Simulated scan of single mutants.
Amino acid sequence: MDLRGLIGRWPVIRQLRGEDGRGSAARSARTDALRPRTAEADTVARSVCPYCAVGCGQLVYAKDGRVTQIEGDPDSPISRGRLCPKGAASKQLVTHPGRQTTVLYRRPYGTEWESLDLATAMDMIADRVMATRRETWQETVDGKVVRRTLGLASLGGATLDNEENYLMKKLYTALGAIQVENQARI
Rank of each mutant, 00 (worst) to 15 (best):
G176A: 11
R99T: 14
E71G: 04
E139H: 10
D20A: 00
R148P: 07
Y166L: 05
A184N: 08
Q183A: 15
T111G: 10
D161K: 01
A33Q: 13
M168G: 01
G72E: 03
L6E: 13
G157K: 07
C84Y: 06
P50V: 05
G55C: 04
E163W: 11
G21D: 10
Y61M: 03
N165P: 06
L167Q: 13
C52R: 00
A177W: 06
A184E: 06
R106S: 06
G151E: 08
Q179M: 04
G176I: 10
P50T: 01
P11N: 00
V94N: 05
R4W: 03
W137Q: 08
T95Q: 03
D123A: 15
R128T: 12
L116M: 13
R35Q: 15
P77R: 00
Q183G: 15
L152A: 00
A62N: 02
N162M: 04
S154E: 09
P97Y: 05
L150S: 08
D75P: 05
L83R: 09
V180N: 08
G81I: 03
L59W: 07
R147N: 15
A89I: 02
W10Q: 14
I186V: 12
Y105W: 13
R27M: 09
G156L: 08
D20P: 04
A174L: 10
E181R: 14
C49A: 10
Q92R: 11
G57Q: 00
L175M: 14
I13R: 02
R46N: 11
E163H: 07
R82A: 12
R128Y: 07
D161H: 01
Q100D: 08
G157F: 04
E112C: 09
